[in-house]
């Protein structure tokens, strides 16, 4: 299972970003290998459709779970058509949000 989070910095100790499409980085964690990796958000400065390109990115990396504080309408429109489940993050670092999710302590958004 691949878990994705928008983060302010790179690495698992980074705080979750307030925005999804305009996050500085995305942290992707694979529960099978127990390994995570940060990706720089290449669409951060897009004038149009940053959220949409993020959704495209998440699909490309076969994300199963997205943990985010909020999600824009257009990105949501796309993700609702997929099997990705979306959970609400808390003001903690990426690693703690992943643990909270694995321990069933996060609220499901969609």
């Amino acid at each position: 299972m691949i878990i994705a989070l928008p983060t302010k910095e790179s690495g698992e100790k980074a705080f979750v970003s307030e925005n999804l499409g305009r996050a500085n980085y995305f942290y992707l964690y694979d529960t099978k290998t127990k390994e995570g990796k940060s990706f720089k958000n290449n669409f951060l400065n897009e004038l149009h459709g940053a959220g949409v390109k993020t959704a495209e990115f998440l699909l490309k990396y076969s994300t199963d779970i997205l943990i985010t504080p909020r999600i824009g309408e257009k990105a949501l429109e796309i993700l609702l058509e997929t099997d990705i489940n979306i959970y609400k993050s808390t003001e903690k670092i990426a690693r703690e949000n992943i643990n909270d999710f694995l321990n069933d302590n996060l609220e499901k958004l969609y």
């Binding site: 940053a50 949409v52 390109k53 495209e56």
Partner: peptide, 9 residues
């Protein structure tokens, strides 16, 4: 340029 088309699965 407006990201109105995406690669969806």
């Amino acid at each position: 340029r407006y990201n109105a088309l995406i690669d969806f699965l």
